[in-house]
Amino acid sequence: MSPRDTVEQSASPPARPRALRRAKPRAPSAAIFAFIAGNPTSLDSLDAAQEQADAVGRRRVDIPVRKSFVRSWDEESPAPLAEIYVGGQSGLVAVKLYLALLWRCAKTPYETDKPARAWATLLDLPDPNTKGARRVANALKTLQQAKLITVSAQAGHPNLVGLAMEDGSGRAYSPPASAYQFARTDQQKQRHMYFKVARELWLDGTIQALPGPALAMLLILLAERADKEPAWFSTAAFPRRYRISHKTRAEGTRQLVARGLLTTDRQPLASTKNASVYDEVRKRTLYRLTDRTFTGPNTNGG
């Protein structure tokens, strides 16, 4: 170093000590509020959800899911939700992981190579680096067998996971909103009808903490637009559409009500023309999701 360089360096103003630098104030995240409120979801999981939301940005604020994931349009075959969710924890992890992948893969080519431990952290699985990562690996196999994703090995890197259509057909994924707009026939429009899962349900830890029956019923009620208006099911139509047992339906409803996500109301059916005062009053249950599940409007009327 020359004497001139030494003089020029000594003449420059001294750096401000790090401790004295004034940091830009940062608003508390949803994770902090959820953690303070006593949410059972870990702070690591809430931080991972916020990091994912920041990475995705405005490309996918809420998570679009085609109705064909939860509802069978063909009564001969169940929808993917009923196939991969069998009431156990393994099926529950697969459903939550698929929702997380739909959230993450928001732009072409709709794929990601995030490691299994990262997904295990987001889903708040115990021991995310070991047991949790293995559960994610098993869930990926389940989703691959259901033709909901593709998995490609990468030497020296985590597997590359790509989205496939939510109906389990194995077709290449495309965003449902644009697909619906360009659909020409009613059958094509039906294939691309979708609902949205609120991002806030990830950011406040609700999705991570939901048990299986509650998550299944939440997705079904969102598909039935119960976040927009009261919904009801006929005894015969529900099992045909969703292939979910009566026990799962009842338990999931109870769990959603207990968590403040759903309200129910028993409403008497209109009397028939020849009704008698001695006839039994028939009633139906109306389901209405609370504002915690609300999202922006869909562009397909679904």
Rank of each mutant, 00 (worst) to 15 (best):
C105H: 09
E229M: 11
T206H: 03
P25Y: 07
I149G: 04
V65H: 00
D265I: 09
R59C: 07
R104G: 00
V257R: 04
G252V: 06
T285N: 13
E83Q: 15
A37M: 13
T112H: 04
R282D: 03
A34T: 01
L286E: 13
W73M: 09
K228R: 15
A133Q: 05
L201T: 01
N274P: 00
Q188L: 13
K273V: 13
K107M: 04
Q89F: 09
P211K: 05
P14A: 00
G252P: 06
S169W: 13
I36G: 02
S174A: 13
S169N: 09
D127I: 06
T185N: 06
I149C: 09
S169K: 06
R59F: 13
R266H: 10
A155I: 09
G57I: 07
R26T: 15
G260S: 10
D44F: 12
I220L: 11
A19M: 11
K147F: 08
D291S: 06
K247H: 13
H246I: 00
Q89V: 08
L148S: 01
G156E: 00
G91L: 13
D5G: 05
R282T: 03
T185A: 08
Y85M: 07
M1S: 09
R254F: 09
H192W: 15
D113M: 10
L46A: 03
R4T: 10
M165F: 12
E200P: 00
S271R: 14
E280I: 04
L46R: 02
K247F: 12
P13K: 00
R21V: 11
I32P: 00
P14M: 02
E111G: 09
P64D: 02
R18F: 12
L221I: 05
P128L: 07
Q50L: 02
F69M: 11
L289N: 00
Y278K: 08
L219P: 06
A258K: 13
P40S: 08
R199Y: 01
A34W: 10
L102V: 01
P28M: 08
G260E: 13
K273M: 10
F233L: 14
P115C: 14
T206A: 04
D113C: 08
R254S: 15
R21F: 01
R282N: 03
V56D: 09
S72W: 05
T185V: 06
G156H: 01
D279R: 06
D167F: 10
D127N: 12
T285P: 12
E224Y: 06
V93Y: 01
P28L: 05
Q187Y: 07
